[in-house]
Design a protein around this nucleic acid. Structure first.
Lengths: 242, 242
DNA sequence: TCAGCAGATGACTCGGTAGTCACATTCCGA
DNA sequence: TCGGAATGTGACTACCGAGTCATCTGCTGA
């Protein structure tokens, strides 16, 4: 969605964008709170302080249009994050491992910044991936592929340069993104639970999840060094954590 | 749910169980096909060949009761699978790594056998985890903890015996289950897509996903040996794949 | 000042379903 | 064989929310 403060636009157009943003934000807050199915256009309109009919002037497909505009926003952000984190593979001191560590940290930061968007992504995109509507399923396939494509070149380079094991780059990229996604999702889940139920006992791995650095360390160590305990026989074979 | 052929029950009771099973199976087939929200009691009743009112005689909570009975079935199966796969830690030739490999293979087998159940679990449980209804969120927390608890002792033993790296057992158990779950989920997703869209181009990692052995090998190697490519400098430090 | 138009509005229509309940049917023991 | 208990049934009710559209509002340019 173009920025509503873009000065190349006429006042009228800027005004339109601004309203569109207000409606989208209202929709996001309702979706995050109630979930897509439970959200009603009435409540979104009320929160945006517009009439129900007005929403249709800005989002032809109504509720669904608002949902997909939300997806577009979050997928653009994620793509940008992956690309910028793994750029500079030519630099002398570039480390794929360190870049991955950074991705985990940045993902956490983004989650904290836009908790609402993540909640919507996690809940609704997952559901819609399994939709019987071919168009919708294809949309999510494309978006996921876009994320994988953003990461794959970096994995390929790392494999070529012998930094990581010679496994299929696409599969590795897929697996890495999946694991990060899971971590954020798990944190999101525990936080969501704590909000609903203040009496909830803290899980044993809670500190791991709430400290971005600790989580990134755990994940990086697990994925790069592996679970196998080869240090007793052979202490020198492990790389230090970045 | 007790077996409807249990001979300790009266004929009437057995007959009740049998009908309950028929209704549950009808519900599962509709849920798997349409998703929970889109499924209607009318269609479930029709498919079960009973009147709509009759469903309420067997499942007081209607649609929701049928959904939760389905969850109970699948979680019981999974718990059983984890426990039986990791038992026998005392045996001389027991290998945690091999047991994990076996878990992946068995998970695939279960998925093939009960595709419908998995689809429901993946779609609906995920959604309900984030429900604002405290009771429901707690149910899924309990079930997930049950799975983790089933695996944790085996991880602890493996850590104590120095077979795997000294990381928090609960976190490791959690991560392992998550990764297996993701793999199955991904396979389920691609299969679901292929059903809907025959023109779909095969993904590059498709063979990995459709051959249980290959998938288990990939996952075991990745998780136990790690991504880090330490073989050129130090070929002896890696354990062979089981 | 005013005509005309872009845009806002929310009461209304319409389609759809969960859950109910008065009645029908079947079962079973006396 | 019969009567009443248990069980099945589906038409009906009550509710809900998406999307529409006739109407209103306020802006702009002549």
């Amino acid at each position: 969605m173009p920025d509503s403060s873009d000065t190349t636009l006429s006042r009228r157009e800027r005004e339109q964008r601004r309203r569109q943003r207000i409606m989208l934000q209202a929709a996001q807050s309702v979706f995050a709170e109630k979930g897509y199915e439970q959200a009603t256009l009435g409540e979104i309109a009320e929160r945006a302080e517009f009439g129900k009919g007005t929403l249709y002037n800005y989002f032809e497909d109504g509720k669904e249009g608002l949902l997909f505009a939300t997806f577009a926003e979050v997928y653009d952000d994620l793509d940008e994050m992956i690309c910028s984190t793994f750029e500079g593979a030519e630099t002398a001191d570039y480390s794929f491992r360190a870049a991955f560590h950074e991705l985990v940290v940045r993902s956490f930061a983004y989650y904290e910044e836009r908790e609402d968007l993540f909640l919507i992504l996690i809940r609704e995109a997952h559901q819609l991936c399994f939709s019987n509507d071919v168009e919708k399923a294809a949309y999510f396939q494309e978006q996921q592929q876009r994320m994988i494509d953003a990461l794959t070149p970096a994995v390929e380079t790392a494999v070529d340069e012998g930094r990581i094991a010679p496994l299929p780059p696409q599969s590795v990229a897929h697996m890495l993104l999946e694991v990060v996604h899971d971590l954020i999702e798990h944190r999101c889940l525990t936080e969501h639970r704590d909000e609903n139920d203040a009496t909830c006992v803290c899980q044993s791995d809670a500190p791991l999840l709430h400290d971005p650095e600790a989580a990134a360390d755990f994940l990086t160590a697990l994925l790069f060094d592996g679970l196998e305990n080869d240090s007793p026989e052979d202490g020198a074979s492990r790389s230090p954590t970045p």
